[in-house]
Simulated assay, not measured.
Amino acid sequence: MSAPEIALPGFDLSAFVEATLAEDLGGAADAARDLTATACLPADARLKAVLDSRDRVVVAGLPLAAAFFRRLDPACAIHMLVADGDEVAAGTDLMTVEGNARALLAAERSALNTLQHLTGIATLTRRYVEAIEGTEATLLDTRKTLPGLRHLEKYAVRMGGGQNHRMGLWDAPMVKDNHIAAAGGITPAVAACKAAGLSDITVEVDRIDQIEPAIAAGADRLLLDNMPPPVLREAVALVAGRVPTEASGGVNLDSIRAIAETGVSHISVGRLTQSAPAADVGMDYLE
């Protein structure tokens, strides 16, 4: 199958590809700036290569990898062997690319860096999704992303089966502990948000005694921060379904099942984007 288009609203993919290649090529997305490939290979040399996974992974970022190759060789032939979101075994071929050798080698590292990073996030996300399977909890990501890569990293979370939380500070209000402290309490903080015309307001609470004041103030959702499972269970019982509840803080693969079984509706995990190891994906020459 040919390389599909990738939908990333609000993200300038062309600019990202241009800037990433320019970083590796000394200021311009120009294959002629690759000293080694230019010295070793004739200008018309051809190359066919395969991108393959060395581990069991959930794939994310193949269309992005294709975009790097196409930027330096618009005529290159790309054949996708799997799709983003697929879980594949170690040794699986992901895609082939054929075209100008200098161009493809100049784009190789940028393509692989992006594919490895996003595939690592998707793979880790899938492990978390599997860990809470059968519960009522939904897995969410956070804003703990690498600067400039948020749209891509949140795309990878979706490929792994997780859901995106807010994209940033602009698309959903969340009243956190520092907002509460600066505003003089939960009630004035929420009241100020409502006066500003905001809706779907999440309020962070880290103590049981904050739950009723938050709901009474008009919170539409509660973020239960850094509460161990016994406290979370108590909090969920107290909320009694009046608003959705989100557990957050210190969640890992060892603890997430117990957290999900407390009855919270959502669990947000910063580790999905903050700590996912890169997947082992390589590019190899094909005879």
Rank of each mutant, 00 (worst) to 15 (best):
G241L: 11
L198Q: 10
K176V: 14
L223F: 10
H179K: 06
I211Y: 01
L198W: 09
L222Q: 05
A214S: 13
P230G: 11
Q210L: 08
S199R: 15
A181P: 00
G218N: 06
P188Y: 04
K194C: 04
G184T: 10
I186G: 04
A192K: 10
R221Q: 13
E204R: 08
D200G: 12
R233Q: 15
L222F: 07
D200M: 06
V190M: 03
L238D: 03
E204N: 09
T202R: 02
H179M: 09
P230K: 09
I215C: 06
A189F: 03
H179G: 11
T187Q: 11
I201L: 03
R207L: 10
E234S: 12
I215D: 06
I180K: 08
D220L: 01
D225K: 08
A217G: 03
T245I: 12
D177V: 01
I186R: 00
C193M: 13
A191N: 10
A240R: 04
I215M: 15
D220R: 03
D220Y: 00
Q210M: 12
G241W: 01
P213F: 05
P229Y: 08
L198M: 13
G218I: 15
I201A: 06
A182G: 06
V231S: 08
G197W: 06
K176T: 15
A189M: 05
D206Q: 10
L198I: 10
A181R: 15
Q210A: 14
G241V: 06
A189V: 13
N178A: 06
A240G: 07
R242E: 07
I186F: 05
T187P: 00
D220C: 03
P244K: 13
T245V: 14
A217R: 05
V243C: 08
A196W: 05
C193H: 05
R221D: 09
K194Y: 02
T187G: 07
L238N: 01
V175K: 03
R233L: 11
A192F: 00
S199G: 15
A195H: 04
G185Y: 03
P229K: 09
V203I: 13
G241F: 02
D177P: 00
D206S: 14
E212M: 03
V203E: 06
G184I: 07
H179I: 14
A181V: 14
V231C: 01
L238W: 01
K194L: 13
N226I: 07
N226G: 10
L223Q: 08
I211K: 02
A192W: 00
A196E: 07
A217T: 12
A183V: 11
G218E: 09
A196D: 10
A219P: 00
H179E: 09
V190A: 05
V243D: 08
A192V: 09
N226W: 04
V236H: 03
L238I: 14
P188D: 07
G197D: 05
V205G: 06
G185V: 02
L232H: 07
A195D: 11
V236I: 14
S199P: 00
R233C: 02
L223K: 06
A181S: 11
D220K: 02
Q210K: 08
